[in-house]
């Protein structure tokens, strides 16, 4: 970055523009990966004869990874100043896990 006060703003802008473009490239890559995970999940259900004992955990892992991309890239949780959002979401996930565990265990047998 230039220190000359006359050009710094302009340089700053092109520097930041470049940064945003790179950020956007990462977003498109995340999107491609998410589409890929979706295709794998649908493909496994549609075309493979896998036992549901193995298939269900694989599907759940694919979903969690895809949601991770959604949160960290699309919703910017990887960026700075996102400590509080992380606290809120993981707090929600914690209560969600308890709720799910309770409702699944109560009907297990």
């Amino acid at each position: 970055m230039a220190n000359n006060p006359n050009t710094s703003k302009l340089k700053m802008n092109s520097f930041q523009r470049q940064k945003k473009k790179e950020e956007m490239k990462k977003q498109v890559i995340s999107f491609a990966l998410m589409i890929g995970f979706t295709l794998i999940a649908f493909g496994l259900v549609g075309f493979s004869e896998m036992d549901s004992m193995f298939l269900v955990p694989i599907l759940l892992i694919l979903a969690v990874v895809q949601v991770g991309f959604q949160f960290y890239y699309f919703m910017h949780m990887k960026d700075k100043d996102h400590e509080m959002p992380a606290v809120m979401i993981y707090g929600g996930v914690f209560a969600a896990m308890l709720t799910l565990a309770a409702l699944i265990v109560i009907t297990w047998w």
Binding site: P85, L100, A102, L103
Partner: peptide
């Protein structure tokens, strides 16, 4: 607004978890 919306989404997570749990149970 930014913090408030994330707080709301944390609550929504729990709301949908209870609906998912009910679905899995039934």
């Amino acid at each position: 607004k930014f913090l408030g919306l994330w707080f709301f989404l944390g609550g929504e997570t729990v709301l949908f978890a209870s609906l998912f749990g009910t679905y899995l149970a039934l």
